[in-house]
Design a protein around this nucleic acid. Sequence first.
RNA 1: CUGCCCGUAGCUCAACUGGAUAGAGCACCAGCCUUCUAAGCUGGGGGUUACAGGUUCGAUUCCUGUCGGGCAGGCCA
Length: 552
Amino acid sequence: MKANLTTLLYHAIQSLNVVISEEQITLERPKLIEHGDFSTNIAMVLAKQVKKNPREIAQSIIDNIEKNNLFKKIEIAGAGFINFFLKNEALISVIQEILQQKKAYGRNTKGGNKKIQIEFVSANPTGPLHVGHGRGAAIGDSLARLLEFSGWQVTREFYYNDAGAQIDNLTKSVKARCLNIDVDNDDFPADGYRGDYIKEIADSYMMGLSINCGEEIIESHGDIADDDCIKKFSVAYLRNEQDQDLANFKIKFDVYSLESSFYKNKKVDEVVSLLKSNGFTYEKDDALWLKSTQFGDDKDRVMKKSDGSYTYFVPDVAYHLDKWERGFHRVINEQGADHHSTVNRVRAGLQGLKKNIPLHWPEYVLHQMITVTKGGAEVKISKRAGSYVTLSDLIEEVGCDATRFFLVSRRPDSQLIFDIDLAKTQSNDNPVYYIQYAHARIEGVLKQWGGNINSLSNNHPYSYDSLLEKKLIKKISEFPELIETASKDLAPHQIANYLKECAAEFHSYYNDSKFLVKDESIMLGRLSLIYATQQILKNGLSLLGISAPDSM
RNA sequence: CUGCCCGUAGCUCAACUGGAUAGAGCACCAGCCUUCUAAGCUGGGGGUUACAGGUUCGAUUCCUGUCGGGCAGGCCA
């Protein structure tokens, strides 16, 4: 509908001999019902260029709109808004559209089936996943679903560091625990990991357990002197645990990339020699530096440390070169904002390769920190992890659906307060239940009715005259526009907000109206509206990876 | 000290990227179940959008500065 209107407007403006692109025409959904179904400010935008009063321009645009039978009326309002009021038939046609397209309703082809990669979570295997990873997981996975729905060919990817200093640190920590060195003991590694889980790993290692890690089975022989074996075992143990957490969070990845693989396949060497031969490096203080300031970084960065090993961003650049060579049109990295300093470095490194990689490739979605509260007080630690709240604690305490909803429901760039008490309440306080309840309520009515559900997708002679019906129809018809803006903005929280509003419109309607009435045309008309609403709720929830229960 | 993000009702958050009278939910007050799920609905009070300037027909949104919070600025990731 919106697209149709835009085209109509475009033609009307062209016939005024005004140069304009179709993208410049913005159509809005007015907040107030008195402002019609759609509204545009295009006359005010054109006022400067045309040098005429906006209201005059608006009038000539209206006069030039091609004949059609969509509108009840078109008005000029305020400083020069053009407000469109659609005919009833045009408005209610959305119900049949939804019921015919079902789970495909709202889908679009903006992505043109091009390849896009979303990297998210990317936790290092040095401990259990924490809430921050959970936020990344919820946002990243919803983004993936949203972009698939928008016609992109999506690859979900997880990258982890299985090679650097942090892994050595993990190994030392586990080893210390194998030797029964307590975390308070002076002999325990100064920067070691102190959570109880380290003790669990050590115990399992000493017992000679084996870990089933993908296709590989990692065995331990309980040999305390074998650092390499401790390392492999610990990494496998934690990877295994993280996979379990992610599975419980209903998240699947298509590809796992290992930092070590970019050393093995010489990608790191390739990157370093390219940067060298392109003249973007220099030696200083026994180290090799990247002239990242030439690409907008605020200082140059060390690539190769004085001990001969590379800093973390070098394999990161190699990894992104690998992504580029795999042919992704777009790459989105979802990460915690505490990693924002890597953005400039990775992009600078890629530019230095002179491979014609676009300036803003890859894109980043950075999420801010999370505060978890319970009983009004901040929760800072989990017993197992020691210094932070784990994702599995949350899932266990409030469930997967509520956890996902709360973690995805805020703009990524604002700090989030996760209220465990609120997420746990099974009442109207809790938006997840509020939305799911709307879905279940509709299912209840449809079950009670017991008729042929498919017959609802036919046209029914009912005019939807009540205000609540009009508002609900308006809301569900906005779903395709929501998908477009949410995926353009990489902002899945918009889906969560929308679903709350949609559920609210439904609950009001439900409370006000009777569905199973004697008059069949009224009944079928109303049932098809709520059936369409249910479909919208289901489609929206599935974009967030949240279940749509038939009863509660 | 420098860079990035944020600052909206008592609390948690929106606001279609510059639009019309800034919206929801909690909390508070007053109502609605012999009728399809009350996990619901209806009504009410609550705001100088941190502050001060600027840009223009029009600013929560863009620019500058100040204040406050978070995160970075390690040859850690």
